[in-house]
Design a protein around this nucleic acid. Structure first.
Lengths: 150, 150
DNA sequence: TATTGTTATACTCTATAACTATA
DNA sequence: TATAGTTATAGAGTATAACAATA
């Protein structure tokens, strides 16, 4: 199958190709533990914000409350996190349980290994340049033009 | 919600953040036409390979035949492509219809506009550097180490 | 035998809408 | 009133398994 060269001039397409390449290997190493990048991100957020409630987690993940429910139910059923009593009677406080802490640490080690393999053709200067340029993506803010970052 | 700084050292995470940022705007501009990045990619492949069969398209998109069926059914129902008689009696030949050509051109214009907005903080030298570095991602090949790019 | 298109079925992730208890 | 958690339901997108027709 031929590939349309018109796509090569679209940065977003190049980013997508890179993303699919990187995420495929990340998913491969997380799979034995039944985790996905999204679930790992949730665990990281809970570790960084112990006691957070479900709605805050949902907002941080850009998903809605009911989607977060399924995610949290799954992580709870897997024995990685638990719901404790929250600040008041209508909120839950999310916490990693010890097995969740261990699992997360192990998965981060795997993920770093994957990341190292997938970036081994870049030297440390190139890595810094790449992450710097990636962070400059997104609409220019602060300009007096039309504001859209709603 | 705090964000774990450990993620910042993982290139794959930075790529994912950039991907989500870019794809969100791309989806926004494609949505009025009922298209997604995946559907647009399918249209591009069919345009670049007129008369290709469904299985070849599926392989190019890294999805299986039955997933490709749904995709092709959707694009056909939307009046963008059609199945014609193929090289033999068991293959279909996929082609864009005139409305599909027009729609694709319009969507590519929208997509380039989105891409320009999302990369406006990069000058042309930085864009070239970014795409060059993105293309260097992936496991090193050609080394005499363990071959895994199966 | 292997491949193409197809259908049936199921799983994951996401969403909306509505309900309840609480604030 | 507004918010947190929950449940039911639905829609994409993907997959596997099986089948008929054809190569």
């Amino acid at each position: 199958m031929k590939h349309d060269p018109e796509l090569d001039s679209i940065i977003g397409y190049q980013v997508q190709v890179a993303y699919l390449l990187m995420t495929a290997d990340a998913r491969r190493v997380l799979e034995p533990q039944g985790l996905t990048p999204a679930k790992l991100t949730a665990l990281m957020l809970i570790r960084a914000n112990p006691g957070c409630d479900q709605s805050a987690l949902a907002r941080a993940l850009s998903i809605n409350r009911s989607s977060a429910m399924k995610l949290i139910n799954g992580l709870t059923a897997r024995g990685l996190i638990e719901r404790r009593a929250g600040r008041n009677l209508r909120t839950n406080a999310l916490h990693l349980v010890p097995e969740g802490e261990e699992c997360l640490k192990a998965m981060l080690t795997e993920l770093r290994g994957s990341d190292r393999r997938m970036t081994e053709r870049l030297d440390s200067s190139e890595r810094a340049t790449l992450t710097g340029l990636l962070r400059k993506l997104g609409p220019a803010r602060g300009k007096r033009g039309q504001e859209s970052p709603a």
